[in-house]
Design a protein around this nucleic acid. Structure first.
Lengths: 210, 210
DNA sequence: CAAATTTTTGACCGGATGGACAAACGTTAG
DNA sequence: CTAACGTTTGTCCATCCGGTCAAAAATTTG
């Protein structure tokens, strides 16, 4: 899977591999897998192509490492959604964490979006397995809150989808958001405004009980 | 821009060009521009590569034609948002139309998403021009409704973003949605459930006035 | 320091890919 | 029917790109 195989990692290997992954994240997330070339990544990492291939034998190995690493952190916010606290506070926290991830890790979000857009060829099993299980589990928790009359009744799975969609939108469609908001409103305040809007949309909506 | 240039189109030319565009939409929308090859498109269109290149001189010409055609219809739902009718009914209609587009034209949605994900290199001027103008205009209408107390007060631009995000999500992230819903719930009812959910999320939320 | 090991590089290879071209084939209009 | 025009195809080319390799340079180890 990776070049220096089973042997222990050298200091240089650890550093250079990290450098490559950082560069590759930048390149892959904007051009997609096939749209990116090893030369591009090598140049972004400040090394020659053969040198890069010394650390990762194949282009796909870099991509796979990035995806694996991404998935580990990607679902963390949802995992943290627990039924111990106040339901409204839990959901508010989840939305906030997801929006923060869109703000702080937009490249990871785009890498993921690229993968899904192309039919998720490399992570389909994970979607049908781990992800589905996790969503089922959290949807059950949310349903419980609804039955208990703690939040308004709605489809919990589509609620999760809409939270994913609205938060990741600020990473995946960033250029469009900035273009539409213009230089003035498109500044740093974007995410603050978005947070306020989403808070109102979801929390006020969920408080209203039929 | 296109092969048979300024001359009048033959019957065969009209048919074959349409065939190519249909095939190219399929290929581009799933593999992106760089990820697609002329051979792939030619095969999907049932013709040889040189034959395809007789109708479109360059690969980019096909893509550009698709993008231009897409943009014409893409913004139509938003254009139709008018301030003549009932505000709630107008917004409900807009959300419904957008969701129908995600259902009926998912490939167009993914083509657009691919373009934006990669930084919108070919349509940036349009985003900053036509699109921004349109959004500004519609945001003003929505703001008017809010000032008049007809709908709840919120950020009109982020409201539009969230409608885009939630509806297009069902086209762009289709494989993920299906994987998570599973074979049972993932059937045809997806969009019906989504419509009900979005109706509740937005309409109930907007009705509530502070 | 010197040997062993790791890292870096230039040169190279084979296959894929976008595109050119001329010749063959088909269609249509006079 | 035939000349003109439109369509299709096989062949070819230059470039790009993923990946290899051996040898040079740098680093680590004893």
């Amino acid at each position: 899977m990776d070049a220096p195989a089973k042997k222990r990692r050298t200091r240089i290997q650890t550093e250079k591999r990290e450098l490559i992954l950082e560069a590759a994240l930048e390149v892959f997330s904007t051009h997609g897998f096939r749209g990116s070339t090893i030369d591009q990544i090598a140049e972004a990492a400040g090394m020659s192509k053969p040198n890069l291939l010394y650390y990762f034998r194949r282009k796909e190995d870099i991509h796979e490492t990035l995806i694996q690493r991404l998935l580990k952190t990607w679902l963390q916010p949802l995992r943290e959604l627990d039924d111990v606290g106040d339901p409204i506070a839990e959901l508010r926290g989840y939305i906030r964490r997801k929006l923060e991830m869109a703000r702080d890790y937009p490249r990871e979000s785009r890498l993921f979006a690229n993968e899904i857009l192309q039919g998720a060829p490399r992570i389909m099993p994970l979607l049908e397995g781990e992800l589905k299980t996790l969503v089922d589990e959290k949807a059950a928790i949310i349903s419980g809150w609804m039955r208990a009359g703690k939040i308004a009744t709605t489809d919990p799975r589509h609620l999760i989808f809409s939270i994913w969609a609205t938060t990741q939108h600020y990473a995946d469609f960033d250029v469009q958001v900035r273009a539409v908001l213009g230089p003035d409103r498109g500044g740093d305040g974007r995410f603050h405004d978005a947070a306020r809007f989403l808070e109102q949309l979801y929390i006020d909506g969920l408080r209203a009980k039929p």
